[in-house]
Write a protein that binds this DNA or RNA. Structure first.
Lengths: 206, 206
DNA sequence: ATTACTAAGATTCGAGTAC
DNA sequence: TGTACTCGAATCTTAGTAA
């Protein structure tokens, strides 16, 4: 976010035309007059500010940018845990889900109260969901610690209980994740893949 | 404000240690892995973040910086006109106040209801007051337009009625200002300079 | 007084690469 | 995999100066 634009905002240039020279801007923001001038030209080209004989104003567009930026910060700083819901599309997995669920079965039964269907559902999140995805980390997960069985090591899991159309399930995040941030792996009591097909679904945390 | 720090904030790195690679940061913020790495090193040197085996955390200091920045934006965007009060120190002026008040006397009488004492009080604002100073512009001023007298031109003034310890006065801002942003010029009915001396005073807008 | 151009210097960045 | 170094390129900033 441009520091000059924020400075002008603090001066109230979004409320009333404001007279200020590039020399003063430079002095206030500890930069040269020349640089202030150049950057004002850029801001003007971007349409963030407008200059006229009455003075300088932050445009609607410029103010919107500032507001969006402020809201992002606000959300990040003031966010509280609320109902989290993801939207995404079912995609093909690697088919290895079956193997792993068999291996993790006992642990899953202990932690979820049931042994899930032998197969996982991979859900690719929409572009707007990524930010929410990161909020998962802020919620207390069910933890399955690393364990060893038959001499083979299995990495720990974070589980988040959820529902997909009233079907009970859980989001599974391997502690040492291999999926990208944009894919959620779901286990559930029922065979989700058949019921849902390749389409958009909603996942609601419980 | 550093965009990487804001990104990490959005990921909740201020609440819990967070595992993320410089490659992913680069991809998310549309920059090279090398650049993300370099900037992470800088953030770490500044003390804004801390990296350890458990992951990455935003430090107290880093979070404070983000919070201050957010508050500044918030104040600028959500500010409403409230009682404005300045604190500053009386300083020596150039002594030209007397000449000007005599010239502006008639106009001042018209606008303030009295002819001020022939001399102005210069008040240097404290460092925290500068932001408030800029809010003056958002308040409707009393305006004395440019005028000519005896062939000499006099620049317009903005007046803001105020009180200094219950003494009626006005802040005078020349339209073509010569003072820095940190000095307020005050006129009043009484001889303020003698009453106050060189000390800290409060100016309350009315 | 003001703004903004040019040229040179300073900083930031990405590609290649080592570990 | 991952991080972080070097180095040339791209970008940003300042000084000088014109208008």
């Amino acid at each position: 976010m441009d520091e000059i634009l924020i400075f002008l905002l603090k001066q109230g240039a979004h409320r009333a035309p404001f007279r200020i020279s590039t020399t003063v801007i430079g002095k206030e923001l500890d930069m040269s007059q020349q640089n202030a001038s150049r950057r004002m030209i850029l801001l003007e080209r971007e349409g963030a500010i407008k200059r006229s004989s009455t003075g300088l104003t932050i445009t609607e567009s410029g103010l919107r940018t500032l507001n969006e930026f402020h809201n992002e910060l606000k959300n990040a700083l003031e966010w509280k845990v609320e109902r989290l819901e993801f939207t995404g599309t079912v995609i093909d997995g690697l088919g290895e889900g079956e193997y792993y669920i068999k291996k993790y079965a006992k642990k899953l039964k202990e932690n979820l109260g049931y042994i899930p269907y032998f197969g996982t559902l991979n859900v690719k999140l929409g572009p707007g969901e990524m930010q929410k995805r990161s909020r998962l980390r802020l919620i207390e997960p069910i933890i399955i610690e690393d364990f060893e069985e038959d001499g083979r090591k299995f990495g720990g899991l974070f589980l988040y209980k959820c529902r997909i159309k009233d079907i009970e399930g859980a989001i599974v995040i391997p502690m040492r994740t291999h999926h990208g941030m944009d894919v959620l792996e779901i286990v559930s009591k029922e065979k989700l893949r058949e019921k849902l097909g390749n389409k958009r679904i909603k996942i609601t945390l419980v």
